[in-house]
Design a binder for these strands. Structure first.
Length: 897
RNA sequence: GGGCCGAUGGCUUAGGGGUAUAGCGCCACGUUCGCAACGUGGAUGUCGAGGGUUCGAUUCCCUCUCGGUCCA
């Protein structure tokens, strides 16, 4: 079943699917487009083509079809007041970070606000009926078009008009009536200008007809009537029919203003300000035809550069005009658009990063910076943010609160881009040949150099088609989580005692048992979930290994034999473990709120893990934590403990909880149930959470952060301990620092000793050397060092076998003596622990025939070891101390012979 | 979780199985009325921690810690 088939079927029966009271009352005609055959409804008897193929397409540019002039802010005020007047509730926008859906990073349509996924089903939850919402939506598909086409945005405001047909809401007739009246009455557009085009919508197993409404070729909105489920040959009406009318607020503003592009009337004063700053001459006789032509051509070509080329050709703009006016304008539009999107995304808690949705934000920021570089525009991003928020807060007052946070994140990210460019440049400059696919992967994985950058730098001409395939192969070998399928059909939900009295000992009936698994009618054992580790304890005297939850059934895995089905067993929860985990769980909430208050509004829980004696919380944050950050977070957490704040647990209907507390409650992820359990610590922290918690923060006694680590871009891990574990940790740390202090003292003493020793050696060497050199013939011994002089012309020999000297002494003395006597060979042997070492120094002249290295080799061999070195200096050693005298004799014979 | 890189006087760093480099800074002396500058000389290092291989490890191998960086 595809859209085309549905449309064919529906359009074949317009009376049933498309005709509404409005068309009857006003006398709309149904026509088929001469060009494409599409069916549309119009009051204009002369109109023969659908809006996509009409002559008046985009003729509102420079000539709007109404006398009213509404900018972006005013347009919403008009829309809102119209719908409120007509019994709609106006609700605040939902966050652009779509935390209530696992399958979306960002809110992409107003209807998403009210969709909740439960298992494989999407259910709708409306806080009011009917309602209207100015929903900011983020879409990154057409980034290339932003700034160029005049109407594409990376984020836009979708006017969401939603209704469920019941005693409060309405269905097609009233919906189309309202939309028609909105355009004609509130916006002053002539009735003849409005065209409704037949279309259909299909998704998520349901489908329905829809009417798109156009004015002068511009699609303003689309009213979707979600009505059926099944397939085309056999479908039935849904229990819950829904009207999903989505309209683009930016387009409403544009059609009244008739500016060359939608960008000119939707960003407030910033656009003019930047244009003035850049000194672009925005001659409307150039811009109006150019952007009208762009808008028309957009439907004709797939390739954007082709659209642009053609528009330039048709309007006859010169290269000079393009370079001086059009190109810089496109850059300004892009920058403003991207910053507006970043303002919303960062305000709602998203961070630019290299993963998931954060990557889109990073890409946008980099586009902003590189556009400024390319066009040599010097804008102050902070100023742009300020002016935009000043304007946006008319519609979205909440943006004021995060103004400074947005600036901070953008400035950090800009700095990061600069240094990453430098780093990439450095790495790229070292490349000596064109990298192969394998090299590209290494460059990307270990150095973060993207192939896009290499292409930009002209290092490679094209990104190899196999690049992304090979990259994903590399990461696909990771093991997949094993899915265990247990025979649980027909087993009733387990009653969870830990949400009630939470007994630590209880009797329960065995509903089912197989292999090592036991299912009870009720349990006080907490099953693994929400980052909280399972309880330990025993069932019928058998130790529990693991507890997991399958749907609403708790499955206990035990060691040993399982009890018989139907038996009643006595169960005991390991209290000490549970208490430790419970303290850590509440501590996680405390650390989370503390981190947010210390670091900034962008801090959200990323994931968490709670064990008996330690826990960790991963939060979203842009940088690694400093020691100062850690201390502040710890102090904030402990002050919450000191304040003895009661921990309150209440159950709410999900929609009520969201309206009452906002989307901050979804710290731990999406809650797939209708009723949510809200855990609140005063008004400091309010989260939807299924875990076990202490009654009062004072029960935790103490929190100690043990370690923090940046585990991925934009995520910091905080490891901590609480309660007794925290006390133990503090005690141990105290002991550690004491023993470290002692160790350092010993080190210091050793160092002093060493220096003293060295000093002594240094003083003694010249004295001893002088005495030895006084010997003019024969032999003398000074302080266990023997000097033997040979006949003139032959090598002199000086040696010592005393253990009173170390290597530093021998090296020093050898050097001193040989400098004075170039015919001298100095040979020092000394014992060092279990080993014996040899140091040989040879004077300048003698080293040419008697190499120190050779002598050492020979001596060391006798000593049962090895050695070597240069002709003038060598060292070696061995293990056989008893050969010491043999060794020195050998040396003597080698030198003197 | 994984990959890569790094840790050498106060700082920046070279090197690489056999006496540990250099620059800046520091100290002393000289030149100078003095400072800067210059010249000469000097001090400062268990080469991140622990283990292994070796006669000998800062260097090679293993483990760990810390830091950086990239990927998921």
């Amino acid at each position: 079943m595809n859209k085309k088939e549905i449309l064919e079927k529906f359009s074949a029966d317009p009376q049933r699917y498309y005709n509404v009271n409005l068309f009857e009352d006003q006398g709309f005609e149904r026509k088929s487009c001469n060009e494409c055959g599409r069916f549309f409804w119009t009051l204009d008897s002369e109109r023969v083509n659908c809006p996509d193929h009409s002559d008046d397409t985009y003729s509102f540019i420079g000539d709007p079809p109404t006398s009213k002039r509404f900018d972006y802010t005013q347009s919403w005020k008009e829309v809102e007041s119209f719908f409120v007047k007509n019994n709609h509730t106006s609700i605040n926008r939902y966050p652009v970070v779509c935390r209530w859906r696992d399958d979306l990073y960002f809110t992409i349509a107003s209807i998403v606000d009210f969709q909740r996924v439960m298992g494989s089903k999407v259910v709708f939850e409306f806080p009011a009926n009917p309602l209207v919402v100015p929903q900011t939506c983020l879409r990154f598909k057409d980034l290339e078009n932003v700034g160029v086409t005049g109407r594409h945005f990376s984020s836009f405001c979708m006017i969401g008009q939603h209704s469920i047909p019941n005693e409060n809401g309405y269905w097609k007739d009233e919906c189309v009536d309202l939309d028609f009246n909105l355009l004609t009455q509130q916006f002053g557009i002539a009735k003849k200008e409005i065209t409704f085009v037949e279309d259909v919508w299909e998704g998520g197993g349901s489908f329905g007809s829809s009417l798109e409404y156009f004015v002068r070729g511009l699609e303003l909105g689309n009213a979707v009537f979600t009505e059926f489920q099944g397939d085309l040959s056999n479908y039935k009406t849904l229990d819950q029919r829904i009207i999903d009318m989505g309209a683009g607020l930016e387009r409403f503003a544009w059609i009244t203003m008739g500016t060359p592009t939608a960008y000119d009337c939707c960003f407030g004063p910033i656009t003019q300000k930047l244009i003035q700053k850049t000194g672009i001459d925005t001659d409307s006789s150039v811009l109006v035809p150019y952007f009208t032509e762009i808008a028309k051509n957009l439907e004709l070509y797939d390739d954007l550069s082709q659209v642009r080329k053609n528009a330039i050709k048709t309007t006859g703009l010169s290269d000079e005009q393009i370079n001086r006016i059009i190109t810089p304008l496109e850059g300004i539009y892009l920058i403003i658009d991207h910053i507006r999107t970043l303002i919303f995304a960062i305000s709602d808690g998203a961070l630019p990063s290299n993963v998931g949705g954060g990557y889109n934000l990073r890409i946008m920021l980099r586009r902003i910076v590189s556009t400024m570089d390319r066009l040599k525009l010097k804008f102050d991003l902070d100023e742009i943010i300020d002016i935009q928020i000043d304007y946006l807060k008319n519609t979205y007052p909440e943006l004021e609160k995060t103004r400074e946070d947005v600036k901070e994140i953008i400035s950090i990210e800009t700095g990061r881009y600069d240094s990453s460019k430098q780093r990439m440049q450095k790495i790229v400059s070292k490349l000596d040949k064109e990298p192969k696919v394998e090299d590209l992967i290494t460059l990307y994985e270990s150095d973060g150099v993207t192939p896009e950058y290499l292409k930009e730098m002209k290092v490679i001409s094209e990104i190899p088609s196999t690049f992304y395939a090979k990259l994903s192969d590399l990461h696909q070998s990771k093991k997949q989580k094993e899915q265990v399928n247990l025979p649980l059909e027909g087993v009733p939900d387990t009653e969870l005692l830990f949400y009630g009295d939470d007994p630590r000992e209880f009797d329960a009936k065995v509903l089912k048992s197989f292999e090592n698994f036991v299912i009870l009618d009720k349990t006080a054992f907490y099953a693994r979930g929400g980052g909280q580790e399972p309880d330990h304890g025993s069932i019928g005297g058998q130790e529990i290994i693991d507890i997991t939850k399958h749907g609403n059934v708790v499955v206990h895995e035990i060691k040993g034999n399982v009890p018989k089905e139907g038996d009643t067993v006595s169960c005991t929860v390991d209290s000490k473990r549970r208490d430790g985990i419970t303290k850590n769980h509440t501590s996680t909430h405390i650390i989370n709120t503390s981190a947010r208050s210390v670091l900034g509004s962008w801090v959200w829980q990323h994931s968490a893990f709670k064990e008996e004696d330690h826990a960790r919380l991963d939060i979203t944050h842009h940088s690694a934590l400093t020691n100062d950050d850690v201390k502040k977070i710890e102090d904030a957490a402990n002050s919450i403990i000191e304040k003895s704040i009661p921990v309150k647990i209440e159950n709410f209907d999900r929609g009520t909880a969201e309206q009452k507390y906002g989307f901050r409650i979804y710290q731990g992820g999406v809650v797939p149930v209708k009723s949510v359990r809200i855990v609140s610590i005063g008004n400091l922290d309010i989260e939807a959470c299924g875990g076990t918690h202490v009654v009062n923060t004072s029960d935790i006694e103490q929190i100690k952060i043990t370690k923090t680590k940046r585990i991925q871009d934009g995520v910091v891990r905080i490891e901590f301990v609480s309660g007794d574990s925290a006390k133990e940790f503090v005690k141990k740390k105290q002991q550690d620092s004491e023993s470290k202090e002692k160790e350092e003292k010993v080190k210091e003493q050793e160092k002093e000793k060493r220096i003293e020793q060295r000093q002594l050696t240094k003083e003694r060497i010249p004295v001893i050397a002088k005495s030895l050199l006084e010997c003019k013939q024969g032999a003398i011994t000074v302080d266990d060092i023997t000097m033997e002089l040979a006949d003139s012309g032959k090598a002199n020999f000086c040696y010592s076998t005393s253990n009173n000297y170390d290597d530093v002494f021998h090296i020093g003395l050898g050097e001193a003596l040989c400098n004075e006597d170039p015919k001298l060979v100095y040979c020092g042997l000394f014992e060092q622990g279990e080993k014996i070492r040899v140091i040989v120094y040879a004077g300048e002249d003698i080293s040419k025939e008697k190499s120190a290295g050779e002598i050492v080799k020979s001596i060391s061999q006798i000593l049962g070891g090895a050695g070597g070195g240069s002709p003038k200096f060598a060292q070696g050693g061995g293990i056989d101390k008893s050969k010491k005298e043999d060794a020195i004799k050998n040396a003597k014979s080698m030198i003197i012979e």
